[in-house]
Design a protein around this nucleic acid. Sequence first.
DNA 1: TAATTAAACCA
DNA 2: TGGTTTAA
Length: 762
Amino acid sequence: MDELIYGHNTEKNIVAVQQIDESRVKLYFREGNLVREEIRNFYPFFFISDKSYLEGFRKNFWLKKLKGNNFYQYVCAFNDLTDMWNAVRVILRNYSARHMVKVETYADAEIIYLRPDPVHQFLLQTGITLFKGMEFNDIYRIQLDIETYTRHRFSNPERIEDRIVLIALSDNRGWKHIIDGRRKNEKQMLSELVEIIQKKDPDVIEGHNILNFDLPYLIKRAELNEVELSLGRDKSKPKVATITYDKETVFTGIEIYGRHIIDTLILVQLYDFVKRELESYSLKYVSRYFGISSANRIFIPGERVSWYWENEPETLIKYAIQDAEETRKLSELLTPPYFYLTQMLPFSFWQVIKSGSSSKIESMLVRAYLRQRHSLPKPDVGFQTTGGYTDIFYTGIFENVVHADIESLYPSIMINFKVAPKKDELGVFLKMLEGLTKMRIEAKHKMKTAETPKEKAKYDAIQSSFKILINSFYGYLGYSRAIFNDYESADKVTSIGQDILKHLIAEIKKRGGKVIEADTDGIYFLPPEEYSTEVKSPDFVKQVSSILPEGINLVYNGFYKKMLSYKKKNYALLDKDGNIEIKGASLISRGMEPFARKYIAQCIRYLLNGEIEKIHELYKSLFKAISERKIDIFELAKTETLREKPERYIEMVKLGRRNKSAGYELAISRGKNYRPGDKITYYITGSTPDVKSFENCKLVEEWNPFRRDENVAYYLSKLNEYSRRFEIFFKPDDFKKIFSLNDGINFDNVEIITRKLKEEIS
DNA sequence: TAATTAAACCA
DNA sequence: TGGTTTAA
């Protein structure tokens, strides 16, 4: 089993692979603090651009689609050069004269490529991955942070008078260093950096936003200063990686030969993609969030850096060192799962971070197939039709609510009901899933029994690296571009999941419980009277779990003092410590105006605490603040992400295929050259509530506090609209009273209404 | 270089 | 209805 997952990983401690010439590569092994080099041969291979050439090779060679210059290519690898040239001959013989001519004519250019990216291909072919057999603490990481000087608001690497004034470095062995711009000119600073990197020879270079700021800046300044920025293990310069698409060149990253670049900003984004808790991705905010801020943290906003350099350089130095150290701690927190994944996947550290879940799974499947020299299938065309089961049976407020969910529902179904892609002739898909699951359980066990925090952290990283893979198997089945995709199997997984959940709901009802809401693999319910305590409810969960099929387990997931049930996928929970958790797009969403988000959250708090009069007071005060124009404009302003390119947006609107949108209209009309991904914050102007927002909007920066022009009627009607979220919890008369401007109302008799929306399945 | 469906809300 | 954001 290990073999399937670890592939050909027989080499230990390899930290880098590098091409020497056409048929040899240099391997770098880390041994303690030293790096040993060794030269090896590698397998020849070629790319072809048209898969029809591969028909004659089914089950003879391994094939993998890869992206070359704007189009997908297929790779064939061979034991030796003779084998490879034989294959070329077969291709030439098997296809028509036209094709033959074409192949020959373009042999060096378009159709057949020889070794365009040996390092990557070497890893892919042999399955030798970096850092094999190493622990995260074994690798040598350097953190880098630069500070730049400018007379303008923002520093620009191309402006000759701007310059790098500080380079702060730290490493994971407690070393710290400052390259000080007071003693050295920029040229000397850059040379010192090169010297240090060559001498220290780090495996990894880390930084927060290093890919979009520090490294590009260093590269540009090195160019201007005519310094060879030889940071690579082969003393080469950093390579700016781009892809050309529609004649447009897009920056995709920076590569330093033989080293890994880790940008902690990307890791933070990845983290928040799941968690959705962060307000900002800045190093300072994130460090505080994770509780890893340096003691006496200095904060210097970007536009103040130059001032500090001129007036208080020592403070700036401390600040830069703190940045480097926080980057190290952040990386220690976020990268280990990916580090351990590089030992399982034929990808480098950075590729593992950047690649999506399907390529992770597929790379393992492809590796297993190519080891057996078995051909690979093509993706099926079609789509998955079934998903998870979601239902809501009651709305209102409930006490003593239990949350239980089925442990790893989809992976468990795949394993226990043997659901696998029909194209997987070698049957490796399930074996891998089972193996990974087993290994994750072992890692979890080692984590629990670990004796030191360090050990614990290590096994936690390992088990979460398994989790990342395990969770990707189901999604892979329904993915249109996956070569082993199988929509029927994907549907089978979800329909079995639906049946299990429905069965569970019926069982809880049968045993005297009351199910409030269910979604995919979890349920919120009121247990029968005799189990309605935090201590006893897990017993009930256990009993119910026993009726589920073999290998499918319902686990207790929490006991809540109160639950507010609003709609499918929308609810709030109050735990015994008074913490409130709000879930659902209609109750908590980044698309809402900040005042609305806070208003809804407050109303929910008051509702759960039974403080009806406070809702009334809040409504009144907010109404007043808006009508008297006393509310902060940022509370009213919406923030929109512009994801489409301006040309595309304009085109779609012109064709009537898309509605106009305030964010885009503003960005375009203000002549801002926005890039997809940019955010825009705007508010609504005018005087009636039903204005078209894309015709009546202004950037929040354009707002004038002395001539306030926000649309009061519009925002008041918004307030009422948001209040209506709470309509279902009250009798109509009570609702009117609460959300009114009247004074002196008595709320003693207000009842919170519970509604039964439908009968539980039985 | 790209995992899935379900559901709510907005313009 | 298409776009966006969320839950799982």
